[in-house]
Write a protein that binds this DNA or RNA. Structure first.
Length: 283
DNA sequence: ATGTGTTCCTGTCCGC
DNA sequence: TGCGGACAGGAACACA
């Protein structure tokens, strides 16, 4: 499900309920998600104060006061929802336990953080905070697309000589981390680049143009609270609304929204995943 | 090294 | 209303 904007949206919603609060009780309802959960996870979380809730790529990172960090990935269908706190004038009551509520953190403030993941492609691990950069899930990640490391020069260098389609290259988390199927489709449309084009065969000026396009689209999506198709919810349960601005994703056979283009959005499957694009204005 | 297809799991939707 | 198949926002893994 979630790509960088959805994870960042969730992080922002969870932070007020988690940062500074103590995990009074960690409820772990099954031994595994995509992989086994950490050994004795409930014991190791109980009594710990969350000092900071960060994010790297699509990973949420909850730093704890004992030098460990809880790493959380939402996979395709994962949600992290907060209850038992007041947001503005609204009080979010605790919901009834639901199917696929795999981990629940009961905070000492009365807040509750529920990790629900039907498909169980999500993951959690615990690792020393100072060793996070060398953690096997983190170490090979490319730069954050919103950061300085993701520059026109960097991207050009990473794409040079690559015969793989640009679609696959942008989905490769080692090249740039945080993009997924939706935002790659949308960014390529805005940049006028076909998802089928070989990554190493894009004119330098067009590669350069891709960088600000990706930055802008992610920033806009975060502002909109992410994109809610099936699973994504903000931490307070609200829907994101960036999906209403999709130009091509999920719009097979719709007219291309580019001014004066007149093309029709097509869907093709690339390495097992749908790509939506306009064959007229994306070359 | 690089590129591609398969796999994990559950839920939903669509056509018959 | 039921049933089968396609498809879903991710990404590790096996293999050519």
């Amino acid at each position: 499900m979630p790509e960088l904007p959805e994870v960042e949206t969730v992080r922002r919603g969870l932070a007020p309920a988690m940062e500074g609060a103590i995990i009074a009780r960690a409820q772990v309802n099954r031994p595994d998600l995509r992989w086994p959960l950490p050994e004795r996870m409930a014991d190791r979380l109980t009594g710990r104060r969350v000092t900071r809730l960060g994010r790297r790529s699509k990973y949420l990172l909850a730093d704890l006061d004992d030098g460990q960090t809880l790493i959380v990935h939402l996979g395709m269908s994962g949600r992290m929802q907060v209850s038992g706190i007041r947001i503005g004038i609204f009080h979010h009551d605790h919901p009834a336990p639901a199917k696929h509520d795999h981990v629940v953190l009961h905070m000492d403030t009365g807040a509750r953080i529920t990790f629900n993941d039907a498909r169980r492609f999500g993951a959690m691990d615990l690792a020393p905070t100072r060793e996070l950069d060398s953690h096997w899930l983190i170490r090979d990640l490319g730069p954050e697309p919103t950061g300085n490391g993701f520059s026109e020069g960097y991207l050009a260098a990473r794409l040079r000589g690559r015969m793989t389609p640009i679609k696959a290259a942008l989905l490769d988390q080692r090249i740039v981390s945080g993009l997924g199927n939706i935002y790659v489709c949308e960014a390529l449309h805005r940049a006028g680049i076909s998802p089928l084009r070989k990554a190493g065969r894009i004119a330098p000026a067009r590669v350069a143009a891709l960088v600000p396009v990706i930055r802008d689209i992610l920033a806009e999506a975060i502002d909109a609270g992410g994109s809610s198709l099936r699973d994504h919810r903000q931490a307070d349960g609200q829907l994101g609304y960036f999906q209403h601005t999709f130009r091509v994703y999920g719009r097979e056979n719709a007219p291309c929204p580019t001014d004066g283009c007149g093309g029709t959005v097509r869907r093709v499957v690339q390495s097992g995943r749908s790509s939506f694009y306009c064959p007229l204005c994306q070359r």
